[in-house]
Amino acid sequence: MTGQPLSAPARAVLTADEIARLLPHRHPFFLLDRITALEPGASAEALKNVTASDGVLAGHFPGRMLYPGVLLVECVAQLAAVIYGSAAAQSSTGDLVADVADRVGYLAEIRQAKFMKPVFPGDQVVFRAQSGPRLGGLISVNGQASVGRELVMTARLAVTELDQP
């Protein structure tokens, strides 16, 4: 034992299967494992378990596996899609989840991405994203990733609003 208190991962607000109804992404580019907090249209929190069996780590890098920083940014972008997808689902059906994946917005800008620490196989990464001001069909998103108590990445993104049905 390491002496650290054991705590169970946070309960799912949305499971991986539910996320898959909100997002068009699929293997090998379906990156989030669980949504643990969600305020549709405003903010969300997600878990991702980084594992050595992830094919990406076989090439990044042989003999020195670490999770690619750009994929951490992509995780925030997918979490943003969950924030807006769940808002669209809620407004059209009243439920958090509906089949809205075909209306996903696009990534428009990555600004001020910082990678403070590498992420290794075995790490459980917690992502948080918060929706910011919107203008001209674009929304700004603040995102961060942490492992335990340590911040490993922060980024600000702009994404396009969802296509209207």
Binding site: E109, P133, L135, G136, G137, L138, I139, S140, A158
Partner: peptide, 25 residues
Amino acid sequence: DSIDTLELAMAVEDTFGVTVTDDDT
């Protein structure tokens, strides 16, 4: 470009406390 606009709107809000919305184009 339109991406700069969003950044500009955020900068104006941060600095002057004034919001710029789609009604203010």
